[in-house]
Structures are given as structure tokens and as C-alpha cells.
Design a binder for these strands. Structure first.
Length: 821
RNA sequence: GCCGAGGUGGCGGAAUGGUAGACGCGAUGGUCUCAAACACCAUUGGGCGCAAGCCCGUGCCGGUUCGAGUCCGGCCCUCGGUACCA
């Protein structure tokens, strides 16, 4: 053993700020649009300005930074920007609690979060940062709204909201609590929340329902694609109209949507959503009291609750009847809360024999259950449960004998011929309601004029500024409505006095297009320059939490398609590749102030430095699965970085000229593993591979002299592989080893597969599938030789004694299994 | 309820249908130290055995296979989303 010379101490508190300052001065992460390198746009979801940064932000950002840095080391010019999602409800809530202003609260948070984030040493191009509440930003959010309106993708319609009669305020779903009876009450004053209809702005997302089902040419996780497809919920079926024999609410029929027109002859009742427009007029006088009570009850529940009841389905009879479109039989009309007005036509036909829910609904109420699709081996008796499988139509008039699949089409066609419906496609997806009766959001740039009607604010007058002095406390009116200076405006068309729209936009509208603004953040003439858009879009990789699977990610896809069709962007999809990280927990629970399990990154950066915290977050578990923060677990990363430090700086005994295959094999095995893992976001096994490698280098060094060239390659490779994950220590060691240029401007080490080849392979020997022996064989050993070697071992021969080998399974270089009895 | 994901040692986790538990934390024992901390070394799924070794073991029940943590069917539980939290 050599006598270890005293080494400098690894001191992250000293070296980390020093390098961050140097990187900022050198501007190595700033993107230049004229750079000849291949552009790569790596984006992580913008954080909400929620106050202090907690470890969850680091969990989202640090691995993204590592991946972005890796792409940079592949020789690309990487755009890796960050900004803040700044409008929204939490700012108003916090402002009320802390007696401050949402704007002040928000920008204070932007400042805090920016400085906390900077300690991470992430490779952001900070020159592109903005908050969505900046007037220069929301000016363009408003501009996009005008474009969508111009192209018929924004329209006004009546829509429900949660209204608290006590506060006189519209509540977010989150602000509605449930009382002991399961009734929604205001979180502040506990008044019972009412459903109130308001005229609001909608975006026509359903116009893109079919295109949004397709994910061709983009790389999304399968679960996300599934969730979005299910969210759209396309089903083919038929509309079927049941004549009423009279007029009600301007209608002479009730139209239902069904995916099973083949079962039409088994329909013995119709169920309307409680809020269906026909209910009031159809209900007979003697049923009115019961129906009205039921409607009132249903209106107090939200959709999840209405669909959640596990047991008996509730419902009431309206006393009215419609006629079956073919038989003319009277069909009872019911209302039930499990039917939603927003899906299909807000009415369903009840076919108890062939639908489980209809079966229990009818059984409990003595409604007939005629069989119209014959189950296999059906004896003609009543069914004990609904039959939903395939079969042949029976009791269906002229359709008898038709196969059910064919029947779906022929019945629908026959209905179309009679003018009583026909084939149609229904979607679960609804248009997007973007109006918010709140203060802290981007004002919707519209004006209402007595004589001209709805008039858009002229583009040149944007932004419609949010007044700082508006009342945002819950006082009984929509906040901006009470601000005379905001509301009163001259009509841009006729000049007469008019009123501004006082609703603001859903914050998901702000996050619909922020990714485009980063490309050209200081443009005063357009949201984005078309040439730069062509250069940088779509986003190459997008990362963020899977909780955004269907809302943000879905809206952003809709928006990109709309922007394309409006001729503003040339992309079909915003994100070429998507990756979702999981949630970080503490003691198994999501972090929250009330639970008191919030981990503050600053504490840990203070103790171990940013690199250790970054590594620990990446090492915790697979990124997509999330992980549980353990206060003592981080020790392991700290120890490891100290080992790397010592390994890199300690002098080794060398023996020049003698090539060391062991070192090079270890080096290239590590490079191969790390390269593969970082590309697939498998940071935990990536770090494990580097740790194993470090352990191996240590033991090789401790065994005796090492080859100089191989050792140099080993240390260099380790630092380069570590650079994306632990950028500060890698940079410091890189310079201490005599390099001048930043390690972050180096190329990723090349992997040589031939050097990584092992000299021997372990072949597992099993007897009847149980492990009995392991053989070290040269790769490519033939089965006969392996078999002989295995039989020669005591363990295997003992196991085979007294048995007959029936079969031998041979997996070359892997496994030998004797199947014996 | 519906849609999606997950369940493996004391803990976080690893494992193209082929050695279950890599890597790390913790724990135990040791080295160093006046002592402690740090660091380093060793052991560490459970049971039986002096040992060689044998048996059991990846939420539960069943199936496919020479072989199942992995595939199939049925359950239980946890987490995310459910359209105004973002």
C-alpha cells in the first residue's frame, strides 16, 4: 500500500456557488439561435408559484436537468428554459390568508423560487424566464383567445358553476366540502352550494376529438395514451327517438343515445338526466312533488358522487310515457341521477335484459325484462342476470334471427329511414369551459355592447390589463364586475358605452402555449416568430407529473392543433416525446404542511450540497414511479461523492505499458449501462451502475499497480458520466485534473461494446427448475460440454441419482435445466 | 363508481419468462480513537442444520410453462385523475 498523501477536502459549500457563478458569467447554457449545432428542446413543466420550493420541485427538475445536460453532451444545442405558472386560485387564497395582494404574493414567490432553484445548478437559460401573469405574457394569451374566437373555436354557452349563496361567490370544486349528509357546502361559510347557470366562454375541444385519439409519430407513455383515449371516450352507436305523441318544450320526441341499437326491442323504459329540459313539462301533476324533490337532490351532488353509488340505483317515475319507435308500445319515462346531461343526449333507453345497470333498476321496480338477444343455450325462460354477450336477435319483429353485430347497423339504418334517429358517434369529451369568475387570471378580451353585441377587443389594445386595485375578497360579486374603471368601456365598433367581460381565463389556457413563448420570449410583435418556431418546435422531450395526464396535456394538444389550423404554428403536436415522473412522498404520504412532512431542499443543500441532493432524488427509485424521501438515505450519496472525490484525486501506483483489460472492461460496461439508463430516464439504476463501478475501481486499485492509460480513461469516463447528474463536483474534479474547458462542454464518452465483453459467463444449472449449481464457462460453450460439466458436479449428480432425465432445456450462455423424474 | 398505475427483506428499491433481493439506507460485529463522531472492513430475507446442504419466500386465490416477481383469470389494498387545485 502507498502512504496516502493528504487530499483536499470535498467542500460543496465552497465549490458549488463558485462554479454556478462561473457558468453564469460564461453563459454556457444560453441558447443562440444562430448556433450551427442540432437544436434540441427539452422542457419540464413550469412550476406553479406556490410559495417556497419544496423537494417535489427538485424532484421534477433535477432529473430533467440531468437529461438536458446529457443531450448537450451528445453535441446538440439544448434549449432548457423555465418560467412560472402564476395565475390561479391559490394566489387569491394565500392573499386572503396573509392579508396581501395576489400579485405581490405571486411575485414574491417567483423571486424566492428563482433563488432557491438557482442553488440546484440547473442548466436553465434564465434569460428566457417569465411568469404567465406578466402583462407582456398575458397580452398574448389574450391574443390567442381572440384568434380562437375569430376561427369559431371559442363560443358562449350556458354552463353550471358551484355557487355559494352565503358568500355570493362562485366556488371551485376544491372549495366545496361535503357535510355529514354528503351535501356540498362552502368551505368558508358552510352554506349549501347551489348549481347556478351562467353564460360562459367555451373552447371547442370536441372539434378535434377524432384527431386527438391519434398518437402517430409521437412518443407518449402507453398509460397516458389510454387515459386520453378514454377521456375522449369515442363510442359508435345510434340516436333513437321515441315519439311523445305531443309537444313538450318544443319537442315531439325523446332522443336517446345507445351503443346497442340491436337491443331496441328489449327497451321497457327510458331514463332522463334530472336536469333534462323535457323533465318539467313531461312530469304528471301527481308525480311532480317526487320528481322535483329528486331533481333538487341530484343537483346538489357532483358527477363523481352521482356515478359512485355502488348499490341500488335511485330514480323516480315521471308519470309520462313515450312510444317505442317500432312497436308503438308505451314506454315509461323515468329520471335518475346516474344519467348525465353532458353525455350523449342526456337520456338513455333501459334494456334490462342486456345491461347490468338496467337489469337491477328494472328488477327493483317490477319493470318487465324481455329477452331480445338469445344467450347461447337459452331455454326461453326469464334471465337471472343481464346477458351482455353476443347472440342472435329474438322478439324483435322483422329483425328476428339477425346476428347482434349486424343488427346494430340494420336497426340504426331502419330508424334513419323512419326519421327516428340513425347511426351516430358519441364522445364523452366535452367542450372546455374556460371562464372563471375570479380576479387573479388573464382577463377575457371581450366587450358587450347594447347595439353591437359581442365585440372583441382590437388586437392593438391588448393587453386588457388586470387592475391592481380590484376587490378580490369574497364579497358577493364577481371581482372585476365591481371595478367601474375596468368594466366601463367604449364600444370599439360604435363608440357607445359598453361593458367589458369580467371573467378571467382558466389558468390551463396560460399553460397551453408557454412552451412556444420560451422560443421567442421577448418578441413584441407576435407570440412567436414563425422562423424560430420552425427551428425549435415541437418540443423534443417534455417531462412532468402524470397528474396532468388528461387536463394540461390534453388541452395543450388541442391548442397545438388549433394553432396549426389557424395558420399560426406548423406543428401537429406540441410534444414529440413525453415522460411522466411520479410523486415524491415522505413516510409514504404526499407532502403537505398540515401533515408536517414537507422536506425543504435548502436544509439538505446546506448539509450536503446540491449535487448530493440531486443524486439522492435520482437514486430514490424509478423516476416514473416516484419515491419516498428518507432523511438517512441521502447519506449514501454523500459518502459516494466523497469516494469519487478521493478516487479521482488520490495518486495511484502505476505500471505503464501493461494494458489492463479488467479496468477497461469495467469502464465500458459502466459507460454502456449509464448511457442506456439516462436515455430511458432510469436514473436510479444509472447511479447504481456508477457506484458499482466506483467500488470496483477502488478494489482494483487496492489490489496493486494499475495501467496508467486505462486508469486515466476510467477516471475521465466516471467524471463525464457523472457530469449531468452532479454538475458541480464533476466540474471541480475535471479542472483539478488539469482541464481548462468546462466538463459541460465535453462530449459524452464513447461506448465500445467489444471492450465490455466478459471473459466468462455464469451458466445456471437447474434440476426441475430449481437452482443447483453455477458454472463459469467461456461464452459460446456447446450444450454437450455444458451438460457434461454440470453432470460432473456433486450437487447436480446427487440430484440426478435415481432419476431419469426426460428433457434438457438449454439456453446458451445462460441456463441448463434437467427435467428429471 | 369510472379511467390509469402500483403492491418484492427492517426501509428505498434491482431483476429482456431463466441465479429473487443489484445499488443504497438502517442494524449488528470489528478496525481506527483517550473517547465519540467520521471513515474503513465483515455480516445481514425466514426456517432447519456442526457442516455440506435442504426447505420456505415477491398482496391473496387459481391457471399456463421445463421454469412465473414477470404471462393469463378472479379478488384485496394503496396511489394519481375524474373536467373550477395546478
Amino acid at each position: 500500500m502507498t502512504t496516502p498523501t493528504p487530499l483536499p477536502i470535498y467542500d460543496p459549500a465552497e465549490l458549488e456557488p463558485r462554479w454556478r457563478e462561473r457558468w453564469a458569467v460564461d453563459g454556457i447554457y444560453q441558447v443562440d439561435n444562430d448556433d450551427p449545432r442540432e437544436p434540441y428542446y427539452f422542457l419540464t413543466m413550469l412550476p406553479y408559484t406556490s410559495g417556497d420550493l419544496h423537494i417535489g420541485h427538485w424532484y421534477a427538475i433535477a432529473p430533467s436537468d440531468a437529461a438536458a445536460r446529457w443531450h448537450r453532451m451528445q453535441g446538440k444545442q439544448v434549449l432548457f428554459p423555465l418560467g412560472f405558472d402564476a395565475f390561479g386560485l391559490p394566489a387569491e387564497n394565500a392573499a386572503i390568508h396573509n392579508d396581501t395582494h395576489p400579485k405581490q404574493w405571486t411575485y414574491q414567490n417567483v423571486e424566492n423560487m428563482t433563488s432557491q432553484l438557482q442553488t440546484m445548478g440547473a442548466s436553465f437559460d434564465w434569460t428566457r424566464e417569465f411568469a404567465t401573469s406578466d402583462p407582456e405574457y398575458y397580452r398574448w394569451t389574450q391574443w390567442w383567445f381572440l384568434k380562437l374566437y375569430e376561427h369559431g373555436l371559442a363560443y358562449r354557452a350556458a354552463a353550471d358553476c358551484n355557487f355559494c349563496p352565503g358568500c355570493g361567490t362562485v366556488l371551485a370544486n376544491e372549495q366545496v366540502n361535503r357535510n355529514a349528509d354528503g351535501i356540498g357546502v362552502c368551505e368558508r361559510c358552510e352554506s349549501i352550494v347551489e348549481a347556478k347557470q351562467l353564460e360562459q366562454w367555451m373552447f371547442r375541444t370536441t372539434a378535434y376529438a377524432d384527431e386527438l385519439l391519434e398518437f402517430d409519430g409521437i412518443d407518449y407513455p402507453e398509460p397516458i395514451k389510454l387515459m386520453q383515449r378514454n377521456w375522449i371516450g369515442r363510442s359508435e352507436g345510434a340516436d333513437i327517438s321515441f315519439p311523445l305523441g305531443r309537444e313538450a318544450a318544443g319537442q315531439d320526441r325523446i332522443t336517446v343515445f345507445t351503443t346497442r341499437p340491436d337491443t331496441l326491442f328489449g327497451c321497457t323504459f327510458i331514463v332522463l338526466a334530472p336536469e333534462h329540459p323535457l323533465v318539467a313539462e313531461l312530469t304528471t301533476p301527481e308525480r311532480r312533488a317526487a320528481v322535483e324533490a329528486y331533481v333538487a337532490q341530484a343537483r346538489r351532488q357532483n358527477e363523481i358522487e352521482r356515478q359512485s353509488s355502488t348499490g341500488e340505483k335511485t330514480g323516480v317515475f315521471t308519470g309520462a310515457y313515450a312510444q317505442h319507435p317500432f312497436s308503438g308500445d308505451d314506454i315509461q319515462i323515468w329520471i335518475a341521477d346516474y344519467v348525465l346531461l353532458s353525455y350523449g343526449t342526456g337520456a338513455v333507453m333501459g334494456v334490462p335484459a342486456h345491461d347490468e345497470r338496467d337489469f337491477s333498476f328494472a328488477s327493483e321496480r317490477g319493470i318487465p325484462i324481455p329477452v331480445v338477444i338469445a344467450p347461447p343455450d337459452w331455454d326461453g325462460d326469464d334471465l337471472a342476470e343481464a346477458y351482455t354477450g353476443p347472440g342472435v336477435m329474438v322478439n324483435s319483429g322483422r329483425f328476428d334471427g339477425t346476428d347482434w353485430e349486424t343488427g346494430k347497423l340494420t336497426v340504426a339504418d331502419a330508424l334513419a329511414q323512419r326519421g327516428l334517429g340513425g347511426p351516430t358517434v358519441s364522445y364523452r369529451l366535452r367542450d372546455w369551459l374556460i371562464s372563471r369568475q375570479r380576479y387573479w387570471g388573464a382577463p377575457i378580451p371581450m366587450i358587450y355592447c347594447e347595439s353591437c353585441g359581442i365585440v372583441p377587443v382590437p388586437e392593438g389594445e391588448l393587453p386588457v390589463l388586470l387592475p391592481d386595485d380590484a376587490e378580490f375578497l369574497p364579497t358577493g360579486a364577481s371581482p372585476l364586475e365591481r371595478h367601474a374603471g375596468f368594466v366601463n368601456v367604449d364600444c370599439p365598433q360604435c363608440g357607445e358605452s359598453a361593458r367589458r367581460e369580467t371573467d378571467t381565463m382558466d389558468t390551463f389556457m396560460c399553460s397551453n402555449w408557454y412552451m412556444y413563448r420560451y422560443v421567442d420570449p421577448h418578441n413584441h410583435d407576435a407570440p412567436i416568430d414563425p422562423q424560430l418556431a420552425r427551428q425549435w418546435l415541437p418540443i423534443d422531450t417534455y417531462t412532468g407529473g402524470a397528474e396532468h395526464a388528461v387536463m394540461h396535456l390534453f388541452y395543450a394538444r388541442f391548442f397545438a392543433k388549433a394553432a396549426r389550423d389557424m395558420g399560426i404554428l406548423e406543428i401537429d403536436e406540441p410534444f414529440a416525446r413525453l415522460f411522466n415522473q411520479g410523486t415524491i412522498t415522505k413516510d409514504g404520504y404526499k407532502m403537505s404542511k398540515s401533515r408536517g412532512n414537507v422536506v425543504n431542499p435548502d436544509d439538505w443543500v446546506g448539509r450536503f450540497g446540491a449535487d448530493t441532493v440531486r443524486l439522492y432524488l435520482m437514486f430514490l427509485g424509478p423516476w416514473e414511479a416516484g419515491g419516498d424521501w428518507d432523511d438517512s438515505g441521502i447519506q449514501g450519496q454523500w459518502r459516494w461523492l466523497n469516494r469519487v472525490w478521493n478516487l479521482a484525486l488520490r495518486k495511484v501506483e502505476t505500471s505503464d505499458g501493461e494494458s489492463d483489460g479488467t479496468i477497461r472492461r469495467a469502464t465500458h460496461t459502466m459507460i454502456g449501462k449509464v448511457s442506456q439508463d439516462i436515455e430511458r430516464f432510469r436514473f436510479n439504476t444509472m447511479i447504481a451502475a456508477m457506484m458499482e463501478y466506483t467500488n470496483e475501481l477502488q478494489s482494483i486499485r487496492d489490489r496493486g499497480p494499475v495501467d496508467t492509460t486505462a486508469w486515466q480513461e476510467a477516471i475521465t469516463s466516471l467524471l463525464l458520466c457523472l457530469a449531468p447528474s452532479a454538475p458541480h463536483i464533476a466540474e471541480e474534479l475535471w479542472h483539478r485534473l488539469g482541464h481548462d474547458r468546462s466538463i459541460h462542454e465535453q462530449r459524452w464518452p464513447a461506448y465500445d461494446e467489444s471492450l465490455a465483453q466478459a471473459e466468462t459467463v455464469t451458466v445456471v444449472v437447474q434440476v426441475n427448475g430449481r437452482l443447483r449449481e453455477k458454472l463459469e464457462l467461456t461464452p459460446g460453450t456447446a450444450q454437450a460440454a455444458a451438460e457434461a460439466a454440470a453432470r460432473a458436479t456433486a450437487r447436480v449428480s446427487d440430484q440426478l441419482t435415481g432419476t431419469t432425465v426426460r428433457r434438457v432445456v438449454w439456453v446458451p450462455d445462460k441456463l441448463l435445466n434437467f427435467v428429471a423424474s
